Simulated scan of single mutants.
Amino acid sequence: MTMTTSNPLGSRTARDLVLLLARVGLGIIMIGHAALMHGLGGSLSGIGEMWAATAVPLPTLSGPAVVLFEYVGGAAMILGLGVPIVGVLMALTMVGAWVFVHTSPLFSMDANGPELVISLALLSLVLAALGSGRFGLDHLITGRRGHRVVAGA
């Protein structure tokens, strides 16, 4: 016996709204973190100098690159543009943050704990797997391409 329930928004619409909220939230966090790092470093080269005090490889290159990616990737995530690729790259960035920066043990209750970067990495992977939903630019791009294929078939 199957049971059906009525969803006034429709399950697809609810899914797309949740994806939108998750994308916007993640994008805001990434842009906010980039702005914080940029402010602390004073400039992109200053970020590299700041990162030189850490164990991050090639700090003068990787520091500015990560901050630029967090700005651009955060904006792309909010817009729903390139979400599968941006999501994987964000997850890899967060793994790097875990390995090189947030090195305290789990639940150590200090500012260096890895819980946030682990959560952001996992959210990034979920979005990479599920995509932007209908309320993102990816849907508009792939939706149009998909209609051409169907129309030509």
Results as ranks from 00 to 15, higher is better:
Glu70Asp: 14
Thr93Gln: 07
Leu68Asn: 05
Val86Glu: 06
Glu70Arg: 14
Leu79Met: 12
Gly74Asp: 08
Ser62Lys: 12
Val67His: 12
Gly82Trp: 09
Phe69Trp: 14
Gly82Ala: 11
Val72Gly: 04
Leu92Gly: 14
Leu58Ser: 11
Met77Arg: 02
Ala75Asp: 01
Ala91Glu: 01
Pro84Ile: 09
Gly82Thr: 08
Met90Ser: 15
Pro84Glu: 03
Val88Leu: 12
Gly74Ser: 10
Tyr71Gly: 06
Leu79Cys: 00
Met90Asp: 02
Phe69Asn: 08
Val86Arg: 07
Leu68Thr: 13
Val67Glu: 12
Gly80Asn: 04
Leu68Pro: 10
Ala76Ile: 07
Val66Cys: 14
Thr93Val: 04
Ala76Gln: 13
Thr93Arg: 00
Leu92Ala: 07
Thr93Asn: 11
Gly63Phe: 04
Ala76Trp: 11
Val88Trp: 05
Glu70Trp: 15
Val66Gln: 14
Pro64Arg: 12
Gly74Ala: 11
Val86Lys: 06
Leu92His: 01
Val83Phe: 08
Val66Thr: 15
Ala65Asn: 11
Pro64Phe: 03
Tyr71Val: 10
Pro84Leu: 01
Pro59Lys: 12
Ser62Glu: 06
Val72Phe: 09
Ser62Cys: 09
Val72Trp: 08
Gly73Glu: 00
Gly73Leu: 04
Ile85Glu: 05
Tyr71Glu: 11
Val86Tyr: 03
Gly80Trp: 09
Leu89Gln: 07
Ala75Cys: 06
Leu92Arg: 00
Ala65Leu: 15
Thr60Ser: 13
Met94Glu: 03
Thr93Cys: 00
Gly74Trp: 03
Met77Tyr: 06
Val83Asp: 10
Glu70Met: 15
Gly82Asp: 07
Gly87Ile: 10
Leu81Val: 09
Thr60Ala: 14
Ser62Gln: 12
Gly80Cys: 10
Ala76Thr: 10
Ala76Ser: 12
Gly87Asp: 02
Leu79Trp: 08
Leu81Ser: 09
Pro84Gly: 05
Gly73Gln: 06
Glu70Phe: 14
Leu58Thr: 12
Met94Thr: 02
Val67Gly: 01
Met77Leu: 12
Gly82His: 10
Ala75Pro: 02
Thr60Ile: 04
Val72Glu: 00
Ala75Arg: 02
Gly63Thr: 03
Leu68Ser: 13
Pro84Cys: 01
Val72Arg: 03
Val88Gln: 08
Ser62Asp: 06
Val86His: 02
Val67Pro: 04
Val67Asp: 10
Met90Ile: 14
Met94His: 05
Tyr71Lys: 00
Leu61Tyr: 14
Thr60Met: 13
Pro84Val: 03
Met90Leu: 15
Pro59Trp: 11
Leu58Ala: 15
Leu81Phe: 13
Met94Val: 07
Pro64Ala: 12
Val72Ala: 15
Gly63His: 12
Val86Gly: 07
Val67Met: 13
Met77Ala: 07
Val72Ser: 11
Thr60His: 11
Thr93Lys: 01
Leu92Trp: 10
Val88Lys: 02
Val67Ala: 13
Tyr71Leu: 13
Leu68Val: 15
Gly87Phe: 05
Ala91Met: 00
Glu70Gly: 10
Ile85Lys: 00
Met77His: 02
Leu81Lys: 10
Thr60Arg: 14
Val83Trp: 09
Gly80Pro: 03
Ala75Gly: 14
Val66Pro: 09
